[in-house]
Design a protein around this nucleic acid. Sequence first.
DNA 1: GTCGGCAAAATTGTTGACAATCCTGTTGGC
DNA 2: GCCAACAGGATTGTCAACAATTTTGCCGAC
Lengths: 216, 216
Amino acid sequence: MAKEARPGTGEQAKQLALAKLRQAILRGEMAPAQRLVENELAEQFGVTRASVRAALIDLASEGLVERIPNRGSRVRVVTVEEAVAITECRMVLEGLCAAKAAVEASEEQLAQLTELGEAMSKAVADGEPVTYSELNNELHSRIQEFSGQQVAEGLLERLNAQLVKHRFQLALRPGRPQRSLSEHLAVIEAIIARDPQAAEAAVRAHLGSVIEAYRD
Amino acid sequence: MAKEARPGTGEQAKQLALAKLRQAILRGEMAPAQRLVENELAEQFGVTRASVRAALIDLASEGLVERIPNRGSRVRVVTVEEAVAITECRMVLEGLCAAKAAVEASEEQLAQLTELGEAMSKAVADGEPVTYSELNNELHSRIQEFSGQQVAEGLLERLNAQLVKHRFQLALRPGRPQRSLSEHLAVIEAIIARDPQAAEAAVRAHLGSVIEAYRD
DNA sequence: GTCGGCAAAATTGTTGACAATCCTGTTGGC
DNA sequence: GCCAACAGGATTGTCAACAATTTTGCCGAC
């Protein structure tokens, strides 16, 4: 699943359409619940309708768009309840990754985590929520990578794609980075200490607080 | 050749192809790593190639088939390592569901679980591994359903589809049902006791033993 | 004035044909 | 005899046109 989506290389028409559409949706250029008419998209992206169609099927299985038979496609809106449910799944899956990472990661990789933690602290101290948000994503990705759990990684990639909007909004909330930071540092610390149970607990605590934040 | 239009059904061709293909793969009618040629499938199922194509894209995102650009589709073979990784994900996700079910389930639903547990005990006592395996699936499904966690349910559905073969093999292993049974009963007991932490721990213990069993 | 049905427009689903790509077996040169 | 280039066949990717379905605007009946 999740064939590589590299917008840079010259790929097939369908994959190009897929990349463009995904990018447009993730950037929020498509209004929530906006109708996605195959003909319009085909003209807009300079590909044929069949390619757009295939791309839409792919995106539907990723949960980014909703397809109703004979009635067309729309960008899927993620309600707050869904965001909470998704984050609950993230909670356990990232917990698994963190626990495995605490056991599997190399010393070099642990050093990378330490570095990331320092960069995040600096971003918060400097009051740069966007940079912090990016480092945040980076940290989560790295933990997944270091865990070697590719199945969980794939599932999380899909889940996160549905949350981009909510996550971004959350990062801009005043006071949120400070709290988030300390939770993240706790995760890093537990992994470096090679304590899988503590790492899992720390991740859960963190995402638990994210869930609380969503519920406003 | 006998492309009967089936006037009564009116089902969509793609979804029909998808259902047939999935069924064929799940039943093991397709040899492992067998090449899936779009033309052959189209003729075999009495639909057009485009429909088969769409179905294959869907199945690829479900992880049942593997699609290589310009080179076709094959049924994906799940190695033992992958089966373990998948089960690790099931472990945490079903743990989440069990914990939520322990809180959310109605009294009536708890009664259903009790019933299921008794049926499973009987199946083991009667030495009917197939019946037991079916009840086993039923139990897992019910717990997911009772949890109300639709996101996790969707993820698990996808993961389980990839494991059907391994799960079935496991069920037929001598001595396995006995051990499995006691673990399942522990899960049921914890949920009925409305103890989410114990329920999660019991599910994890169970799937942990499944992982051990896979590693032979 | 409102409701039910009807026809036209818009949109998706499907089809068959065409082009691009990849694998295979063969041939020619060294 | 072995390796590289080359045709041949097979398979996927793409395209434009056609059919089926749904939605929408409209008209007439009550």
